[in-house]
């Protein structure tokens, strides 16, 4: 497409969307923050951001009709980027609440356990696993900013595209087709994160 791709950022009251919007704009997209599921259809790509609790997020997504709309859009292959809690909501069974996420990917979300500080907060280095358009042009070992207390346990190891080490392996990037998720916040990960938004906008352009 020659025009700027339109990316809808799902606004379900999950806090600060300022940086997500600005990062996408810097990456060449025009951005629509929306709390209307009907707006998703016109967008070329979607972002499901997230801070806060999974159960509160799912309540809002369900009650506003976003859950079904997102499943429908993803079913049609539209690129969707889930960030942090947004990625965790891709999965079904979720210990936080507990609640049940969108079920777009198989696996579950568990509280981070073991002898380590929770939340996992700060810059951790990424270990790439296989290819991902999100990681194009990004050096192995680059750091990204994480802040989370729950982690995803994907049922399919081939969907894991990057991990990091936090006294044990933590899944950092997942991908299945045009569905991509990052456990870290690319919009808070400096130039590395901005490059990932560019890569996502590239995926949207290619779709």
């Amino acid at each position: 497409m020659t025009r700027q791709p339109l990316i809808a950022v799902v606004d379900y009251g999950a806090g600060n969307l300022h940086s997500v919007r600005r990062a996408l704009e810097k990456a060449g997209a025009s951005v629509l923050l929306t709390s209307e599921p009907a707006d998703l259809d016109a967008a070329d790509g979607l972002v499901l951001p997230g801070v806060g609790s999974a159960s509160a997020a799912m309540e809002r997504l369900n009650s506003r009709g976003f859950a079904d709309a997102l499943r429908d859009q993803v079913g049609r292959g539209k690129p969707l980027l889930g960030v942090c809690l947004g990625m965790q909501l891709f999965y079904g069974a979720n210990e936080e609440g507990p609640t049940t996420g969108l079920g777009l990917l198989d696996g579950e979300v568990r509280r981070m356990r073991g002898d380590r500080k929770v939340p996992h907060m700060g810059w951790n280095s990424l270990d790439a696993r296989g290819e991902s358009p999100l990681l194009e042009g990004i050096n192995e070992g680059s750091h990204a900013y994480f802040v989370h207390s729950y982690q995803v346990m994907p049922a399919s190891p081939e969907e894991v595209r990057a991990t990091c080490d936090y006294q044990g392996e933590v899944v950092a990037i997942v991908q299945k087709g045009s569905l991509v998720g990052t456990q870290f916040h690319p919009e808070k990960s400096g130039d590395v994160g901005l490059k990932m938004y560019e890569n996502f906008v590239g995926m949207v352009r290619a779709w």
Binding site: H18, S19, R22, A23, Y145, V147, E187, K188, S189, G190, D191, G193, L194
Partner: peptide, 11 residues
Amino acid sequence: VSRTADEVFIP
């Protein structure tokens, strides 16, 4: 804060 978040992408 808003001006900062417009150009600086760290927490």
